[in-house]
């Protein structure tokens, strides 16, 4: 499948261009995310309804902060089976459970995507950002007391849905 063609079609079929008050920063993040998933994971997916949330909590925190101006917090969540399948699709290492290697693979993708997003913003002379070390923790929650906006981007693969979150500081 032509990944670039898939990338455009996936974006066109989603509600990404029709959300009020979404910043250019978040829009660019979503565009780059869809592109990077097509390129490095699997192009056979669609986007669920992208939403702006007030709060979110999860059982495993797989996250990375984007630092500079603007700053942001990014993380990945989903059902265990979907996260395992995602980790395996990305790494090809025979991952079958949500173990250390699976979490490492998910964070490796997040770091790759965030890095390429930061490079894109730099190349377009929009801003110069950096990244913190990816983090793994247990139960976590995020809300609007900490962040200006919380955007959830559900990525629906055949094996399940993986949710990406971007929170603007």
């Amino acid at each position: 499948m032509d990944n670039k063609k898939s990338y455009s079609k996936i974006l066109e079929a989603s509600n990404y261009g029709h959300i009020d008050n979404m910043s250019d920063f978040v829009k660019t993040y979503i565009e780059k995310l869809v592109y990077n998933i097509c390129m490095y994971v699997d192009s056979d997916f669609s986007l669920g309804s992208i939403e702006i949330l007030n709060t979110f909590s999860g059982k495993i925190e797989l996250s990375q902060a984007i630092t500079g101006v603007p700053s942001a917090y990014s993380c990945i969540d989903g059902k265990e089976e979907a996260l395992v399948a995602f980790a395996e699709k990305y790494s090809g290492l025979g991952i079958t459970s949500l173990d250390v290697l699976a979490r490492e693979a998910i964070l490796d993708f997040l770091n790759l995507h965030n890095g390429l997003f930061v490079v894109l913003l730099s190349k377009k002379n929009i801003c110069e950002l950096s990244l913190d070390v990816p983090k793994q923790n247990g139960n976590f929650s995020i809300d609007l007391a900490q962040y200006r906006s919380i955007t959830v981007i559900p990525v629906m693969f055949k094996f399940g849905t993986v949710k990406f979150f971007l929170c603007e500081v």
Binding site: L112, N114, G115, L116, V118, V119, E128, S130
Partner: peptide, 9 residues
């Protein structure tokens, strides 16, 4: 070798 290959970095 990094994902953060901006001119600054």
């Amino acid at each position: 070798v990094s994902s953060v290959g901006t001119q600054t970095h």
